[in-house]
Design a protein around this nucleic acid. Structure first.
Lengths: 391, 391
DNA sequence: CCGATTTAATCCATTTTATGGACTTAATAT
DNA sequence: ATATTAAGTCCATAAAATGGATTAAATCGG
């Protein structure tokens, strides 16, 4: 149910609106904030004062724009105090990053670990140690880590990792294995949010994150679409051909059997993405054929996805990013042939500028995003317990 | 951008919260409303007073529950004053209904017209006449029609009907052809909302509305999912088999070519849904085979849809409703085989209790829903101009 | 160079809205 | 008949935003 607005929640919400506008419109004067939000200058001034006190914004000096009249002092987000921890567990690495309120990446650590062989407890002990080291380092830079999110390669429902087939994990309450509070979320979803906040693209897109599996995260109007149980976006198991090769999901002809990393490498007869890229650059016909086949299959699956979800754009990330030049053509061709007559504009197919860090960046970004949306809650939490430890 | 909350909008929102709770929790006392919403008894009492004055709620007498203490007087939605007009244009009929604030259907008129032959202006003149007649009739029952929504068989973006292939219409600003203000929305979307508000199902589902084309509307958390441009839900063109029969959309092997009304009837060698149902009841093998084939294709398309959008349930409406007994089996079988290993629960496949009226009911329901969400706006509009005419 | 003009930011009395406790009302329990 | 309990109303108060006045710091025009 939508909750009633009371005096205190009105204040909290308006604080969020003001801070959100500071983020959106860069350094901006109080007067302009008042204009945009519809609040009075008085109210905005008081709020900016509070936010300054909390170290969430800074005055970046007088803003002289040549106009007549008293120049305003611009206030912008401050990257000096509040920060967030982003974590990622994937098949062959652990990754940790610290991001400040301005979404600048302050620290980043990746550690190659083969987690296929490991139990959840072992992997998470590893991750915890890594996290503590990074948080200590951040603290020595004056940053207060306000929260953390963990990206995992599998569907998550309310903190429970339902299944991570490529890790061999099932029904793990990942958050309970760490000694600090953490939000847990699907890797594909967070990669999409990473693309939203750290890539400079649009705010409506489907982000395809091909790793070992093929996942996708849909962002509409700047918000992630999760479906009824948070399991949306399984592009890898969209049916390309109902009588195609059997898939580990129990179905046949899933996209993963045509465009998954494994299928691609098998079709090309190679055993690594770097090798495949080299072969493609050398113009080897086997590699080229494999990519064309994958591209066409991706085009078929994306056609279904566009009809169902109507994304504004499609962004290819993960392993598809380095293969983009060879996949793009056949995929777009397939989509155009099947979509053009139904839609004014066939969604553009672009490539992600982010590397494999998209998910952990998205994880940290989610924490920052929540703080900006409700700075009052963060303020209350930090004044009640002035320290910064997530431990 | 999220707008700031000011004193007046706080009031407006709380009024909506209170009225929404009255709708949700049936006749309910002021004290219970205060408890649930978190507002004080004083505030709730004042708001209920205003709503009583506007004729949006009524006191339904003392509520004696056998408990000790003063019994409360229950207030519930009033169906005596505020009403909404729902309109629908479809290939072979026009439909109009009036629904009151309690979502009771007060009036309903359907007129068989073959709109395939007609120009938009002609059809809308027809519809307008029908609407005026019904509104007059409603007024004579004491109802004030507060707004209207029109369902059309094609994708709509911001009031513009992009294309209605089965009507032969293109880029029509339907609302401009009527002499009263109307919101325009896709028929499949409104049918889904109709199912939400008038069917007694869950609040997370994918509603499949097979008419001439096959459309679908996704409802998550009681809200319709529209995609980036409002074109989401085109289940009919999800790809079942990439090399299947050519489709009028330019693609091949779309669901519509297997489970669309035309394809179904052709496969069965009959030319009407009633005839098909009769043949199925008689156990004719051609008809049974056609339905089994359609059911399997539907299962394939729904498998892709479930992977991508994660609906809680799937509800079959439109022409699939009468065919449900024969389609259900093969569809569920296909879905289970392909989904069971990936999900705890394969979404249930149910049948809509609503007839072909789902869309026009949803249209009227949308108006009511908006009034309940923001009764303040309605109140302001009606006190400024006390009459009820949508003309 | 000085006053007029313009815009930014703050100050302060006021308004709007919700709050919380006291009070009244109407029922059941003893 | 009296105590108890819960519903609903009354009223003084508190929280928050408002709007106009004031002060501050620029540019413009002579």
């Amino acid at each position: 149910m939508t909750q009633a607005v009371r005096h205190d929640s009105m204040r909290a919400r308006n604080l969020g609106v003001v801070l959100g506008e500071v983020r959106r419109s860069g350094p901006i004067t109080r007067a302009a904030l008042a204009e945009i939000t519809g609040l009075t200058k008085t109210t905005v001034s008081k709020m900016v004062g509070d936010l300054l006190g909390a170290g969430m914004v800074t005055e970046s000096g007088a803003l002289r724009d040549g106009e007549r009249g008293r120049p305003g002092t611009a206030v912008g987000l401050s990257g000096h105090r509040v920060a967030a921890l982003g974590l990622e567990i994937n098949v062959d690495y652990l990754s940790v990053c610290v991001v400040d309120l301005t979404l600048s990446v302050r620290l980043r650590r990746t550690q190659a670990v083969d987690n296929r062989a490991a139990l959840p407890v072992e992997t998470l002990a590893h991750l915890q140690e890594l996290a503590h080291r990074v948080v200590d380092e951040a603290r020595s830079e004056g940053l207060a880590v306000a929260g953390s999110t963990l990206a995992v390669p599998g569907p998550v429902d309310d903190g429970l990792l339902h299944a991570a087939p490529n890790l061999g994990w099932h029904d793990v309450r990942v958050g309970d294995l760490l000694d600090f509070p953490v939000a847990v979320e699907n890797e594909a979803n967070l990669a999409a949010l990473g693309e939203l906040w750290f890539g400079s693209g649009p705010s409506d897109f489907l982000h395809v994150s091909g790793e070992i599996g093929v996942g996708a995260g849909l962002v509409v109007g700047g918000a992630l679409f999760r479906g009824a149980r948070g399991l949306a976006g399984e592009l890898g198991h969209v049916i390309v051909s109902p009588d195609g090769p059997a898939c580990r999901c129990g179905g046949r002809g899933c996209l993963e059997q045509y465009a998954g990393q494994e299928a691609l490498l098998r079709a090309a007869g190679l055993d690594g993405v770097p090798e495949l890229v080299a072969a493609l650059q050398a113009g080897e016909s086997g590699a080229l054929r494999a990519c064309e086949r994958a591209g066409r299959a991706l085009g078929v699956a994306l056609t279904s996805a566009v009809h169902l979800m109507d994304p504004g754009t499609v962004v290819l990330g993960g392993v598809f990013a380095p293969l983009f030049p060879w996949i793009h053509g056949p995929a777009v061709e397939t989509m155009t042939a099947r979509l053009a007559r139904m839609r004014h504009a066939v969604p553009e197919l672009t490539v992600s500028r982010l590397g494999g860090d998209a998910a952990s960046l998205g994880a940290a970004g989610q924490v920052i995003h929540r703080i900006i949306a409700d700075p009052g809650a963060h303020l209350a939490a930090t004044t009640a317990r002035p320290a910064s430890e997530p431990r």
